[in-house]
């Protein structure tokens, strides 16, 4: 299933000669996110200090050449913490975006393809889930389960697939009746092959475009929850938690909450730009096919 999705995604991007056709937006977005991801992967090399090391001689230092982003109230190097924070925020953000996407798309595709009772029931679940604001639902679930990353996973996994299921179902309803799908049936292919190999690459575009916006929201969600103390717990270098820690020092040491906040904004901007670029690119291809 994962392999199939991966193949569909790569098919949707059709790597060959692709970059040449990217818009400026897309290129800028990919550069920003690419740099951030690289910095995260090579964090031990990029970060000058240990992100957990508390140096009480170096407390609340403003940004300087020694400490690019300054230090926090227990003397940890903020730049190093922000760099290590990439690992947490992007990884968690990625997981809570793409895991629900996989089964959301699969469920929506199945419902759209088969219709019938399964579809009716699924639609009802979707309608119910969408009647509540997403954030409120997450917070309620976490309030019940208790704080922590694991419970964020559970809460988001419970709720976030619904949008993907809706998108995939709608696309599948259109795709199902296209003649090439019937042709695949006439040729006696198994249903799973028809749905996942033939239809999926054609219905996944809108989900991919949506996932970029979703990714941004999920990074904000994680840092927001951590800010509220419901997510990643100190001393882990999570951006939202760092902003929360710096809150008390906002007047004496603005950098503690501002600079991790900037990291969030920059990541969000990069992802949104990719999202815009993708929707242009994939939307355009949609048109040439039509």
């Amino acid at each position: 299933m994962t392999a199939l999705t991966a193949r569909s995604i790569s098919a949707a991007f059709a790597v060959r000669g692709e970059i040449g056709r990217w818009s400026v937006t897309m290129k800028v977005g990919v550069s920003i996110v690419g740099l951030i991801v690289l910095a995260g992967i090579f964090a031990p090399v990029v970060a000058p200090y240990n992100p957990y090391f508390q140096d009480y001689d170096q407390v609340l230092l403003p940004p300087s050449w020694d400490h690019l982003f300054g230090t926090d109230m227990v003397g940890r190097d903020l730049f190093s913490r922000v760099i290590y924070g990439i690992r947490i925020d992007l990884t968690v953000g990625f997981i809570i975006t793409y895991v629900p996407m996989i089964y959301g798309v699969a469920l929506g595709a199945l419902a759209g393809y088969f219709g019938g009772t399964f579809d009716v029931v699924l639609m009802r679940v979707l309608d119910t889930a969408i009647a509540f604001p997403f954030l409120v639902l997450i917070i309620v679930i976490i309030a019940i389960l208790g704080p922590g990353v694991h419970n964020i996973y559970i809460a988001v996994f419970l709720v976030a697939w619904t949008m993907y299921a809706r998108l995939a179902r709608a696309e599948m309803l259109v795709e199902r009746n296209k003649d090439y799908m019937l042709a695949a049936r006439t040729l006696g292919y198994p249903t799973s092959r028809i749905i996942f190999r033939h239809a999926l690459p054609n219905i996944i575009n809108s989900s991919i475009v949506f996932s970029m916006a979703d990714f941004v929201l999920n990074v904000l969600l994680l840092s927001g929850l951590s800010f509220l103390g419901l997510g990643v717990q100190p001393p882990e270098p999570e951006w939202g938690a760092m902003v929360a820690e710096g809150r008390d020092f906002i007047f004496d040491a603005w950098w503690i909450c501002t600079l991790p906040g900037l990291a969030i904004v920059l990541t969000g901007t990069g992802l949104s730009l990719i999202g815009d670029g993708l929707s242009q690119r994939l939307g355009q291809r949609h048109q040439t096919i039509l």
Binding site: K178, D179, A183, T186, L187, H198, N202
Partner: peptide, 24 residues
Amino acid sequence: ELRALRQHMQMVFQDPYSSLNPRM
């Protein structure tokens, strides 16, 4: 049962624009 029979019977569709998978 049908899968075996389908080797002997096939169909050509009306709309040449939707009868081929655009991604293959």
